[in-house]
Design a protein around this nucleic acid. Structure first.
Lengths: 227, 227
DNA sequence: GTCTATAATAGGATAGAC
DNA sequence: GTCTATCCTATTATAGAC
């Protein structure tokens, strides 16, 4: 078999995958305008220049579209966290960068954020494949917590189920308040997203390493920070 | 006109309002099973023993049902907060009771919580009337913050927009994590709802009154709390 | 791989009898 | 105040031609 037969096949595959991505992009647009739960395939098709039945060449069902979006979102979140972690010193600085990146991701991708972090689509149960990246997210977060403790930046109890859950609740709370109360505003505009900084200060103070009365007295009170 | 003519009219009004409440109860059930955004009036009618068109004697539209639920939920939340505030000493204790009550309310009424605190129904903009009780909720919270500062339980910067927003984000974060990750579990079962206690400790520590280095050294570290 | 045509269903809302 | 009957529209999904 001549090699020339195989190349066009790759090309077709590539175009097929490209079209899938375009469809997902359009789906996100539609969900942004109509609501996360109101994905309308006819409208999606219109935006990519197809008729609605043609979408079934790319996705088996509407649920498959949701699932693909879920996977894409989870991968995106994971990538953002890895970037944040890679660009900072290990330990508490990494932890702070990761949580800030999560809030930024949520604010910049409100639709994905709704899809991933709340259960906004009633019947939707993400496939194992789509869900998998989030396991890595948790592992990364645990590792950062653990490193921060090992470096003496946080006390040991930060690296526990409760410590992790508190951190997640804190971060998620900041993000979801911004999405609920200041939708459509950027990371730097809204009233809530910027709270991730003091929120992490709060967390670090609460889980401050013991034995450091000297450290505690160095603590700058909120009034001094905000005169 | 004889007085006897007026009494049955009151009775009819009463029954009418009673039926409205029954319809709202059924609507909550349906939303609980199908998803907050998937309110199905035919199913609601079936549950209250009516045919779907008969509902229009009680509500002008599906949106009107949502709006009534929104108002009912907001009133319920406000009532719960007032109860919590009334049963505690003023200041920080009141604040803690109110935030804990909010998390409890969210966990015990997940559907209402979704409806009130996230925008889960795309087109839905609550009427001014339905939204009004939430203004009182914010006022109550501000008052409690202010009292806690006046009593020397928190430093002055707690009684600011940022202090309020942080508190709301913290509380909302705990509640929404529980709803997203441990749905269907009670206040005492889930992994997240109980975090409201340490979360409030964290908040109180961060906004601890100044000038008390002695106070700071009295601080019990998390490791000592959780041996 | 894209189309037209169409099935199949669902669900909100109205008209008018009783 | 409740019903039956019906309208209207939207939307997922399939069949089959090109």
């Amino acid at each position: 078999m001549p090699r020339s037969n195989e190349v066009p096949i790759d090309r077709q595959r590539r175009r097929h995958l490209q079209s899938r991505e375009e469809i997902l992009d359009a789906a996100l647009e539609v969900m942004d305008e109509a609501g996360v739960g109101d994905l309308n395939l006819t409208e999606v098709a219109r935006r990519v220049g197809l008729r609605q039945p043609s979408l079934y060449q790319y996705f088996d069902s509407k649920t498959a579209v949701y699932d693909a979006l879920f996977e894409r979102g989870m991968r995106g979140h994971l990538a953002v966290l890895r970037d944040a972690a890679a660009g900072t010193a290990p330990g508490l600085a990494t932890l702070r960068a990761m949580m800030t990146a999560t809030v930024r991701f949520s604010v910049e991708h409100p639709v994905l954020s709704h899809l991933l972090f709340t259960q906004s689509v009633p019947g939707l149960t993400p496939s194992e494949r789509a869900y998998r990246p989030s396991l890595e997210v948790v592992a990364l977060t645990r590792a950062a917590l653990s490193t921060a403790v090992a470096r003496g930046e946080l006390c040991a109890s930060a690296d526990s189920e409760q410590g992790l859950s508190l951190l997640i609740a804190l971060t998620g709370g900041v993000a979801s308040q911004q999405l609920a109360n200041d939708p459509g505003t950027g990371f730097d505009q809204g009233r809530y997203a910027r709270l991730i900084e003091p929120a992490l200060d709060m967390y670090a103070l609460y889980f401050a390493p013991e034995g450091g009365d000297g450290r505690l007295t160095q603590h700058v009170t909120p009034d001094e920070r905000n005169p």
